[in-house]
Structure formats: structure tokens, C-alpha cells
Amino acid sequence: MKVLVPVKRVIDYNVKVRVKSDGTGVETANVKMSMNPFDEIGIEAALRLKEAGSAEEVIAVSIGVAQCQETIRTALAMGADRGVLVETEEGAEPLAVAKILKAIIEKEGPEIVILGKQAIDDDSNQTGQMLSALLGWSQATFASNIELGDGTADITREVDGGLETIKVKLPVVVTTDLRLNEPRYASLPNIMKAKKKPIDKMSPADLGVDMTPRLKTLSVVEPSKREGGVKVESVEELVEKLRNEAKVI
């Protein structure tokens, strides 16, 4: 069985993100980029399936600029077997990404696709769900545990009220939550070995996908600055302020 894991190149979670002065987006020039942390969890989950003997091959796919190859190399250094890079200059929206992934999945035939529940740049939380709809596959989002059965999987999901375990038929689209696992670091020798693993390159046009944006960004602004707090004298005053100023009770 093959497992396919899409990996997105995003601004590193340690970087303090700055909005461009013209308000069209955020600064990405000379900014440290890394793999989306939820995708690292996805790679780790796939590698564990392989190490348990449930999967034979782990394929990492990235969609975006040429430097996404570095993100794929990170996945290969962690232990993925090969990579696919779909190169495009345009910012890919969730629907376009889902369409590209569908085309690759139809070629590769994986039985499990593990995505991050969201990417930490746009926080869309859409791609996995759209992909499952396009493919007509089962979906199990926000996974915190994956148990494979015979042609099925028991997947524990992190939902508002606690944990929910569902049984789904394979093939399945899974999206990862933070507690699914702690991703490994690539060892120094594996980083070197990853350079010899193959990465297929293609374009959205090769896959017949139209990347024309369907969303229009109106403006990008910094979140409002945190303001200093106020001290209250009594519980009565606190309740009064929560009710009348903050309007939360």
C-alpha cells in the first residue's frame, strides 16, 4: 500500500510575520521557510505505518515555487521514499491544490492520503475536505490516532466535545491534528541520503488543472496591537465591565 502526504512550504513558525507595506500579503523575501508543522506530523504518521509494515511506500508531494523542493527533501530526509513537485509561481488556493492532488492520486493509487488539518500560513482548513469530496473517498479530519484494520481504519478525531473514534473504509483522506504524534528529526546521514532519492517534477498544466484564482484578497492587515490591561477594584466592577464593555456575558 502506498501512502501519499502533501507537504506545504510555509513561513517558519518561529518567524515574526510582517505585512507588506502595500497590504497585498505578507513579507516572504529573506524569511526562513519550513514544512508546515501539521504536514510534518503527516509524514511521521506515514513513516510509522511503513515501519509497522502496513505501508510499502511513502510519497511526499509539494505544490508551489521551485524551492518547495527543499520541503520535499526534508520529508525525504525524515524517511519518505520519493517526491513529486508540481511547480507553479501562482499562489495555489485550496481548491486548486485539491484538484492537483486528485490528479496525482489517480496516477499513483495510494490508499491513504494524510494532509495537515490546516497550513499555518493561510489557516484555511479546507484542502483535505475538498480532496475527499472530489475523490468521493471517506474522510477523517483532525486525527489524533490511526489504527488500520482490514480494508478499514479506526480513526480518533479531536472534536469540540472530546475525542470521537470513527471507522472508515479505505481509501481514505486523513487530516492530522497536533497530538497525532511527535515528528522525528532527520539524522545527518539521512539528510545526505535524501539527496539521492527521486523527485518527479511537473506543472499544473501537465495534470490538466486550471490554477486561475477564484478568491480575491481585498486587504491584509496586522492584527490590532495588544493594549495594556486595566485593574478592577472588585468582582462587581469586573462583572459590570464584562457585561457592558466587553459584552461577553
Binding site: 519550513s34 527543499e70 527533501r73 526534508t74 530526509a77 532527520a186 539524522s187 539528510i191 539527496k195
Partner: peptide, 13 residues
Amino acid sequence: EDQRAFQDSARGF
């Protein structure tokens, strides 16, 4: 690129 990967691994650890 390689050194950035070594650095990431060492920094994370």
C-alpha cells in the same frame, strides 16, 4: 541547502 537541513535538525534537537 544541506547546511540549513543540518542546522534545522541540530536546532530542533
